[in-house]
Amino acid sequence: MGDEEVPGARGTEAALPDRRAPIGRRVFLSMAALGAVGIVIGSRVQRVVGSAVGTGLGGLLPGGDRFRLYTITGSFPVIKPEQYRLRVGGLVERPLELTLADLQSMPSTRLVRDFQCVTGWRVPAVHWEGVQLSHVLDLAGVKPGAAALTFDSYDGADTESLTIDQARLSDVIVAYRMLDAPITTAHGGPVRLYVAPMYGYKSLKWLSAIRLVDNLEPGFWEQNGYSVDAWVGASNGRTDAPIR
């Protein structure tokens, strides 16, 4: 339509531009429509793009470790390493209060594993170091009748959950090193959970307490609709490659 010319009008009105085609509006509305479609089905598009380029869209962009940091409370709790305490309580024989030095003196486990977020991004080959959660459970002594663990965060808002069997997996650790350095405040330091085979929200940051309970209590994100058994690639309606 915009290309239509009025016969005979060219000669006299050549000096005046024929501003007719509303291309600007079309560009604007196309972007709005594409944006809306992208939001609604973007998770599927991203998976196709992600499998094409290997490590997800972040792989296309240079630099950085490509973690995306989320907070529930809007700020990071700052905990000095020497003031850090991990309380282990609930249905245990021996309630514990562990310092960072206590954790560091225990047998350490190193893992090199991807970190997969339920919102689609994945950071390849992150170095983790910490104590196997099963070791901490053995120190405290799990009472019969305990079925699950509840984790609390120093942010005062986030909570997480695992069954006892999940907590005893060899790649579930109480981590104090990450990315070849002590864990930064932004990444949940000085001590956080790392649940390798599950989506990132399970790896609770700023770990303050572990409570043994008789019934699993869904954590913060799980109360907001995320899967309780958060296996990478087999939950939350996603098909990411499992972490190994």
């Binding site: 604007f28 972007m31 709005a32 594409l34 944006g35 809306a36 992208g38 939001i39 609604v40 089905i41 973007g42 998770s43 598009v45 991203q46 869209l57 995306r68 339920v118 919102t119 689609g120 991004w121 907001n224 609709g225 995320y226 939350n236 309606g237």
Partner: peptide, 28 residues
């Protein structure tokens, strides 16, 4: 402006929206 505002708002205030929208909004 329109699309960044919409997708950014879903990232920030995600609770009323389906989970997959959060992923889509991140992507967009």
């Amino acid at each position: 402006i329109l699309v960044m505002l919409a997708s950014g708002s879903i990232l920030k205030w995600f609770q009323p929206f389906p989970l997959s929208w959060r992923t889509g909004a991140t992507f967009v």
